[in-house]
């Protein structure tokens, strides 16, 4: 008898509790904004540099929805009919896929006045409408161990130097930078990007220490001395330098491959006006400088002033500028991603 009375009671209690939790955001509907962003120090920086100033100015609470770009895109596709996310940060490449999936709204310069301050290449258009705006660039530069390599490398061809055999690390295609980096490396070595087979054959002969899936694995390889040279993100490399490790980061003469973290307004966003205001906040010089200081993201906003110590760590290197970054066309890369990955598996990863 006991179970018959307590079980429904408990179920009812549980249902009330769950209902209560779920109902909370709707009760405070006008006072929250759901923003999809990355985890770790990236997410912390986005919250510190953009969300907090936004909340201070508007009183609207930002609810972070943490996930990688890929996860965010998957969520957006599932919620297409009734989105729960207002604004999403997604990386270049995934941004184009989101646009093709039809989950993005266009960014309107009248509602987001700071769009006018963004460099032209930081606005991503499909036809006439802007579907994404860059909130800062990061690059994959030549990173090396300053103890083992006294003369800073100057070219991507240096990876093939016999002295570095067995101690080279590069991104694998499972990393978001892996496939575009292959296109870039082919260009840097003067190969035709229409057929990457020759490059993959050269890579198969290159005595690498590892191909990394995650930026963390690359940092680990440099930290342990497993890798003494390779391609690493400026964000991760300078983080190692800041920790006092003997690491150097250079943008070689062929330039460095780069991409950006972009902001998107979600189609059918429950709080559109607040979302536009949020994106506008992210495009202020203050927010952009803050992201540059915290993540060494190269500002896409014009005339951002950063301290000299930060300026040398930006994705274009010490003396470079935005022009040194090689940003490839993501649509071409996405179209060939499956084939290149397959070719890589057969030629390199075996």
């Amino acid at each position: 008898m006991k179970i018959r009375t307590t079980l429904p009671f408990k179920t009812a209690f549980l249902a009330t509790a769950i209902g209560g939790v779920c109902a909370q955001p709707t009760m405070a509907d006008d006072k929250t904004l759901t923003v999809a962003l990355y985890g770790g120090n990236w997410g912390d920086a986005f919250i510190g540099c953009v969300a907090q100033p936004f909340t201070q100015a508007t009183g609207i609470k930002v609810v972070p929805e943490i996930g990688t770009s890929t996860t965010t895109l998957a969520k957006l596709q599932q919620q297409k009919a009734k989105p729960g996310i207002d604004v999403a940060w997604m990386d270049g490449g995934i941004s184009e896929l989101a646009q093709q999936a039809g989950v993005l709204d266009s960014l309107d310069a009248t509602a987001i006045p700071h769009l006018a301050d963004v460099v032209p290449q930081g606005l991503y258009r499909s036809g006439d409408s802007v579907f994404a705006v860059s909130s800062g660039y990061y690059s994959l530069g030549l990173t090396y161990n300053t103890h083992e390599i006294s003369q800073p490398p100057t070219s991507w061809n240096d990876l093939w130097k016999p002295a570095y055999a067995g101690a080279v690390t590069l991104p694998s295609p499972a990393n978001s930078a892996g496939v575009p980096f292959l296109f870039f490396l082919a260009q840097a070595r003067g190969l035709d990007t229409a057929d990457l087979s020759p490059l993959l054959e050269q890579l198969a002969e290159l005595d690498t220490s590892s191909y990394y899936d995650s930026s963390g694995a690359a940092s680990n390889a440099f930290q342990s001395g497993e890798a003494i040279i390779g391609a690493h993100f400026n964000v991760g490399a300078w983080d190692l330098v800041d920790k006092g490790l003997p690491i150097g980061f250079v943008v070689p003469k062929e330039g460095a491959w780069a991409t950006d973290a972009r902001l998107h307004l979600i189609k059918g966003a429950p709080h559109k006006a607040a979302a536009q205001r949020f994106i506008d906040t992210a495009l202020t010089r203050e927010a952009s400088a803050c992201l540059a200081e915290k993540l060494y993201l190269g500002p896409a906003v014009k005339n951002v002033q950063v301290p000299p110590a930060v300026a040398t760590k930006l994705p274009w290197g010490e003396r470079g500028s935005l022009a040194d970054l090689r940003m490839l066309d993501w649509n071409t890369i996405n179209a060939r991603r499956a084939a290149v990955t397959d070719d890589w598996n057969r030629k390199v990863a075996r």
Binding site: T70, L97, S172, P173, A174, N175, S176, G178, V179, T208, S209, S210, Y211, Y212, D213, A217, R337, A338, T341, N345, V348, A349, R350
Partner: peptide, 25 residues
């Protein structure tokens, strides 16, 4: 395997991850 292979050897789980994480097939 993903960490200790250093991406130089492929096992099935790594191919699966690749398809789901970066190729989206």
């Amino acid at each position: 395997p993903a960490l200790l292979s250093g991406g130089r050897i492929s096992v099935l789980s790594m191919l699966i991850f690749q398809q789901y994480s970066s190729v989206f097939d």
